[in-house]
């Protein structure tokens, strides 16, 4: 008697769900920074004059440069998403690469900016800083805490964008693995791959000696196909990157431009 066991490979992909999840995550990030902005607001109310004085010491040129760098990177990542949607993988990769490069530029700028401050003896707990009045001390403590935390987010964002870059560059291979699909039931039968009406390949009969069966199916999209799974990943990474950008948009005036 011949019976057919069908193993179908079904895929559950919920892009709406992935996007919803990302937005919820962005909310949590915003609230994380809200805590810091609340502290900033309270201390600035308390030490308005000292904040004014301390902010004069920050380098507005480097700050402005970094603002432009981040804004541009937000543009490039948005263009990269559009490019991938229009199926021009190469252009998308170039734009994504530019975004990662700009993120690096931002961090290098930040390094020099912090380095100069530390060189002048202005860092948390330093003798130089502790001699000043309390408002300036808390200003610089907040400056290091907030831009530091933001810098950490830039670093994480860079990592995520790089990971997606690799995914897009490698094309999206999908791999499905079936382990031990009830070997005892398969005894005496043959395994074949069928797509439509055509039979792909067939293996020898499974007898009692077979203990393990593993079937791996790798699926590679054709060159003309839109790379949907990677688009959603890139879109979500882009959303995260815009968040990093927006937080900087608030940090910049609050620290550099209040004098």
């Amino acid at each position: 008697m011949k019976s057919i066991h069908a193993l179908t490979v079904a895929e559950h992909r919920d892009f709406e769900g992935a996007r919803l999840g990302m937005w919820l995550f962005l909310i949590t990030e915003l609230i994380l920074f809200t805590g810091m902005f609340l502290l900033y607001a309270m201390y600035r109310l308390k030490y308005a004059a000292a904040f004014h004085k301390a902010s004069l010491e920050l380098d507005v040129v480097i700050g402005t440069m970094n603002t432009l760098v981040l804004l541009t990177s937000s543009l490039t990542v948005a263009l990269s998403i559009e490019a991938l949607k229009r199926n021009s993988r190469k252009l998308s990769l170039w734009l994504l690469g530019a975004t990662i490069f700009l993120a690096l530029v931002f961090l290098v700028n930040k390094y020099f900016e912090w380095g100069a401050k530390i060189h002048h003896g202005i860092y948390p707990g330093s003798q130089e800083l502790m001699q000043r009045n309390l408002g300036e001390v808390i200003y610089f403590n907040l400056y290091y805490a907030m831009t530091g935390l933001h810098g950490l987010h830039v670093l994480v964002g860079m990592g995520v964008l790089t990971w997606i870059f690799v995914l897009i560059a490698r094309k999206s291979r999908k791999k499905y693995v079936v382990h031990n699909p009830h070997v005892e039931q398969l005894v005496g039968s043959e395994i074949a791959i069928v797509k439509g009406d055509k039979e792909g390949w067939r293996v020898d009969k499974i007898d009692d000696n077979v203990e393990q069966v593993e079937i791996t199916i790798t699926y590679e999209p054709k060159s003309g196909e839109v790379d949907l799974p990677n688009i959603i990943k890139l879109e979500n990474a882009g959303l995260y990157w815009h968040l990093v950008d927006i937080i900087w948009i608030f940090l910049f005036p609050l620290f550099y431009l209040i004098s």
Partner: peptide, 24 residues
């Protein structure tokens, strides 16, 4: 989702203060 990040940042600031001397 809405409340936990707030304690997250508060706890981070304790670590900043203890380890990096960033007194907030």
């Amino acid at each position: 989702i809405l409340a936990t990040p707030m304690v997250g940042i508060t706890l981070l600031l304790i670590i900043f203060e203890r380890v990096l001397n960033i007194g907030i």
